[in-house]
Design a protein around this nucleic acid. Structure first.
Lengths: 357, 357
DNA sequence: TTGTAAGCGTTATCAC
DNA sequence: GTGATAACGCTTACAA
């Protein structure tokens, strides 16, 4: 069947009433009276496509006139590049992710990519499910925010040759590109500040230890305190199964219930959890920082306006996202690139919620 | 060319070293010794595909064994359905959007869809650009969070027959499905509470009037106050070009600079702007609510923990998102459906930032 | 500089 | 119940 016949048959396709008839590449070609491949060359630009300038101009003109929009699925099928990036996160409502996503989006848009987002709601099965769906040649790469120390998604991405960059967290052994902040030293610095403020009875609300952040932040706290001769008692350490303010509140309540006297400070794994803990303190009738000091991590929320202003550790999350996107795009461009780990330095934000003791 | 020859030629395709070789539909078919169309019928399930139960079982088994993942681009090209939904927002870091997105995501995932997100950064050109990209047969429908009263995206979607649901805002005249909260009555109720608290000198930080939210919220404030005989002086009304805390702070500073005495209350278009205004009050040395009361809208942020706890109006944003997703999916299923407008009722949250005067 | 032709991997619509 | 066939709309060597 020749192109002309093909075209003719298509021209006579029944105009579906609901959907507007879209102009195709071949329609543009026919209108300009050139071959489709010439149109493709012009509209794909980037290549060393040598096309006559007036032909090119005419093609562009007619394409615009017909309102031609290339069919991404067709192009993707041919080139197996969708210009789509998957972003998998635990909970998009956790304020760290929107900030990271802002940076990701900005860099992706510049390169003509878009982000497909997968919200797992802390469901481990959802993580692999979403990856499987995305991996269905739907995305050119994945930014993973749910990375566990032993991560099935990271493993599968490696097996399937899907470019992947982990954000905030990183797997333990796998050779995996990542953009993270130095949780360990950030928390260590914070813990030293806590110890220097005179606190000896420290309560800790830590995160799951299958996450590098959970592990590193706890290690940072313990190391920072130890440097000042302070240890955390067994019953002063609680874990949240997920980092929400509700879990933070529940964990703080548990912590406070364990002994008749509260710790002199509670160090939470992040701000969200810390704010939950603050609610628990209030409900228990304890004043912060007068009775119990409190610290967070990430510098999300308007912490300066909280009562009391919450001590935290600031991360440039927008930058984390931007770097992750850049690295992923580089990896897509050249899959042989080494899987580097970028580290962002966190910065202490001491505020009134941490009192001298 | 017969299928067998085709298959043979493909089997001998050079194994690219970087990418893992993916099993295709035809590979499964060959392994089971059935025709590709049979495999397609089995794995697409839903249809009234009458396939022998043991054949189906065998196909599923082999597919799993080969780790077969259908190529989404190919399916999309054929069916012109990508199972992708575009979500366009001003600023994903604005806490209203992650909440909406949570609801959207949940409903989409249930139906086998995923969200592609477009962050315009308040750039009107980006709005149409993103839509054009998404519209490249890339998405089956769009949820629009940037809707202006006269909206080019809404118009184009109508022309191109792309299903669209507007969230939070709605266009003025266009026949457009939308899920919104009743800003007008929400703000009106809040304004009445303000007037009842004895405030007569009311400052207002309003949003751009090309957005239905901006217009309705301002109208609600004015109507609510008027009901109690209170008018807003011209120099007590300022506008933010975008709803960020920085703009809120700047606007409040402007408002305070206009007269020697501050208004007795500032009503901000939303919480984010209100928190910026709170920073301005503090920097100016004014205490809230002692010197100036303050109100927000949306009930984002941990408002109960702010100093002082911020009076606001709560919207069930998760529900807004979920309803928008459901409506869009229904519209995709049946484009002839009427474009209904769902309204969510807001709820007053009176807190200490609004003092009796 | 432009045209030719072959396919990317799937599914819809027929036959049988 | 299963098989054959023809697209879906685009890209890209290669030929001219």
């Amino acid at each position: 069947m020749s192109d002309k016949e093909k075209g003719a048959s298509r021209t006579s396709r029944p105009a579906r009433p609901g959907k507007a008839q879209r102009a195709r590449l071949i329609d543009v070609a026919r209108a300009v009276a050139v071959h489709p491949s010439t149109v493709s060359r012009v509209l794909s630009e980037d290549r060393d496509a040598r096309v006559g300038p007036q032909t090119a101009a005419r093609i562009r003109e007619v394409a615009a006139q017909l309102g031609y929009i290339p069919n991404a699925s067709a192009a993707a099928l041919k080139t197996s590049a969708t210009h789509l990036i998957g972003v998998i996160v635990h909970d998009i409502a956790d304020p760290v992710y929107p900030r990271i996503l802002t940076g990701i989006e900005r860099q992706l848009a510049k390169a003509g990519y878009m982000a497909v987002i997968g919200n797992t709601g802390f469901d481990p099965d959802a993580e692999t499910d979403m990856f499987a769906k995305m991996s269905a040649r739907l995305v050119d790469g994945v930014i993973l925010g749910t990375t566990r120390l032993q991560d099935p998604v990271v493993r599968r991405a490696g097996e399937e040759g899907v470019p992947l960059v982990s954000v905030l967290r990183r797997p333990q052994d796998a050779d995996c590109a990542a953009v993270i902040d130095d949780c360990l030293s950030g928390m260590q610095a914070l813990a030293q500040a806590v110890a220097c403020a005179g606190h000896r009875d420290v309560g800790v609300i830590a995160a799951p230890q299958h996450l590098s952040t959970g592990k590193e932040r706890l290690a940072g706290i313990l190391a920072g305190l130890r440097a000042h001769g302070v240890a955390v008692a067994d019953d002063r350490l609680v874990f949240v199964p997920r980092m929400t303010s509700e879990e933070g509140e529940a964990a703080a309540q548990e912590l406070l219930a364990r002994r008749a006297t509260p710790p002199s400070v509670i160090m939470a794994v992040n701000d969200r959890v810390a704010l939950g803990a603050l609610r628990a303190l209030r409900k228990t009738g304890l004043r912060c920082p007068h009775d119990v000091s409190l610290t967070g991590y990430n510098e999300t929320h308007p912490l300066d306006l909280i009562d009391p202003p919450l001590t935290s550790v600031a991360i440039d999350l927008d930058r984390v996202g931007a770097m992750a996107a850049d690295r992923l795009l580089a990896l897509i461009d050249n899959p042989a690139l080494p899987r580097e780990v970028d580290r962002i330095m966190p910065e202490l934000r001491l505020r009134a919620s941490l009192a001298q003791r």
